[in-house]
């Protein structure tokens, strides 16, 4: 019991720390940390809070979330929106977009954590491949596009992000191959 409460407070503290100017401005200085550090951490916090919701809440939500479809749909809408470059730009320039970002990404993580286990294993597989392909597609786009996508970030930032996405996608693919071919789990994906 003690442990559980402590963990939730920690998560909340992390959330607040991310939202306060020092860390927020530091992470939003560069496209790479914005997209690969800040947003994922927010989603993970949402995910973990979602995991530790009381059981009767989960049950109530689950009746609105047959097979995880509602939650996944919500998560995908949020994810797609924040993949738009102009959305990120707006988050930097306007405080209310920033607020919306913090809230919706958190909700996205939470709805993912509530829905993913309910998904049919085959659907999980399709989503995983689709997420992986999105990594590769975005990475490629960021590398090849002649222009900056975000008014707030440098072209070189965009290029580095592209390379990192491609690298991450490749590592992910290799981990899968080992897992599927030989049953070795490098990471739990």
């Amino acid at each position: 019991m003690f442990n559980k409460i402590k963990r939730e407070w920690l998560l909340l503290a992390a959330f607040v720390a991310l939202a306060l100017p020092p860390l927020r401005q530091f992470l939003e200085q560069s496209m790479v940390t914005h997209m690969l550090v800040q947003i994922p951490i927010l989603a993970i916090i949402g995910w973990m809070i979602g995991k530790s919701l009381p059981a009767n809440w989960k049950n109530k939500i689950a009746s609105w979330n047959q097979w995880g479809i509602t939650g996944m749909a919500l998560a995908i809408v949020i994810m797609t929106y924040w993949m738009l470059p102009r959305a990120l730009d707006a988050a930097i320039s306007e405080w209310y977009f920033e607020l919306i970002k913090f809230i919706t990404i958190f909700i996205m993580g939470m709805s993912l954590s509530l829905s993913w286990p309910l998904l049919h294993p085959i659907a999980q597989g399709v989503f995983k491949l689709e997420f992986w392909a999105t990594f590769m597609r975005l990475g490629w786009l960021y590398l090849d596009l002649p222009d900056r996508l975000c008014a707030n970030y440098l072209l070189s930032d965009q290029r580095i992000l592209g390379q990192l996405l491609l690298l991450g996608g490749s590592a992910w693919a290799i981990a899968w191959v080992f897992r599927i071919m030989f049953g070795t789990k490098i990471i739990n994906t």
Binding site: L129, E130, R137, W140, D144, D147, A173
Partner: peptide, 28 residues
């Protein structure tokens, strides 16, 4: 095994083609 990987490659390349169709300035 092979078709899974083939389809993964297809999923990437088909979308890149689609993006190019609607954003000709993106030239992979």
């Amino acid at each position: 095994i092979v078709n899974f990987l083939g389809i993964a490659a297809g999923a990437v390349v088909l979308v890149m083609g689609l993006i190019n169709l609607y954003n000709p300035e993106f030239q992979p």
